[in-house]
Design a protein around this nucleic acid. Structure first.
Lengths: 173, 173
DNA sequence: TATTGTTATACTCTATAACTATA
DNA sequence: TATAGTTATAGAGTATAACAATA
């Protein structure tokens, strides 16, 4: 295969990634609005990131690749909605770890990243389980080739490669 | 495979698409800046769209999923840079098909979507040709499952599926 | 000195609504 | 009446610079 082929393919992958993200975001934001708590996909991402553990704005900004100042108003907005609260670090009073609230957890439970009924899920399901997993693995492989892509595991909480996934019980079928 | 597995995979694909797009855009915009004509990835996308044929703002806005008014200033900016010009449709004087200029074509030739030297290309190349093509095909398959995804072929000029690609001469290796 | 969170500010992106010219 | 392009405008998102509190 010629280099120009690979360049063409790279370009197409780029276009597809953009489209996919657009579709995904649209359906997620629609469901958030339907739930009665409209917010951007990024705000939702922050909410998910602080679910397993409280994170400071510094940490969040590093993981999201954004300036800390850009997060202040976003956190304000989430706090106004009662979904998170600024906590206190007794060991370092400069830090205000962002904690998720009961309301925040309720929202995450009610509005999953991907719902069974939305176009995103239907599109991925139509690939079949094997192709879907393969697509995910290929995407991760590409991302890990980027210097900034090493922290992908931090963003995909609970992620394990297909072949390494334990055969534990996994909810309803 | 359980439904919850597919939902998890869908969510991971979503995260990956977002990261990938971010990395891709960053390297493209860096190269545009190095070339001396800084612009957003979207402006560059518009430039590419009007390369094969002049398109009206209406058509561009439909294909990009943006409001026409959002494109006016973007086109202004491209016109100020001398990369496109507003043309005239003799059959319908309301229309101003956006034409690419010599300078615009020169830029597209000098700054390809994906360069051989940038992280995007290296990441995709490291997959190997077969996996790269497969990734592209899986992405297209997913996108075509979305109602809005039918026009993907319009956005990927010259795209053909791997198995349908003619074995014609394809430049240097 | 360095770091955390913050404010003020400016710029980009995008949509809505209203308008003009043309069909 | 409907469509193409435009303007004015408002809101979100994001970065830079400067700052206070804390380490």
């Amino acid at each position: 295969m010629a280099t120009s082929d690979l360049i063409q393919i790279s370009s197409e992958i780029q276009t597809c990634a953009g489209l996919l993200l657009k579709f995904f975001s649209a359906s997620l934001e629609q469901r958030l609005e339907d739930y009665g708590v409209p917010m951007s996909g990024l705000q939702y991402a922050v909410l998910r990131m602080v679910q397993p553990e409280a994170l400071t704005i510094s940490t969040l900004s590093q993981r999201l690749g954004l300036d800390p100042s850009a997060l202040v108003r976003m956190i304000d907005s989430l706090e106004r909605k009662g979904l998170v609260k600024r906590g206190v670090d007794p060991h370092d009073r400069r830090r205000n770890p962002i904690e998720i609230t009961k309301n925040g957890m309720r929202l995450l439970a009610a509005v999953p990243v991907v719902s069974e009924t939305d176009p995103t899920f239907r599109a991925v399901r139509s690939l079949g389980p094997a192709s879907a997993a393969q697509l995910r693995d290929l995407l991760i492989q590409v991302i890990e080739e980027f210097p900034e892509g090493k922290l992908v595991s931090q963003l995909m909480s609970g992620h394990t490669r297909t072949e390494a996934r334990p055969p534990a019980a996994r909810g309803r079928s």
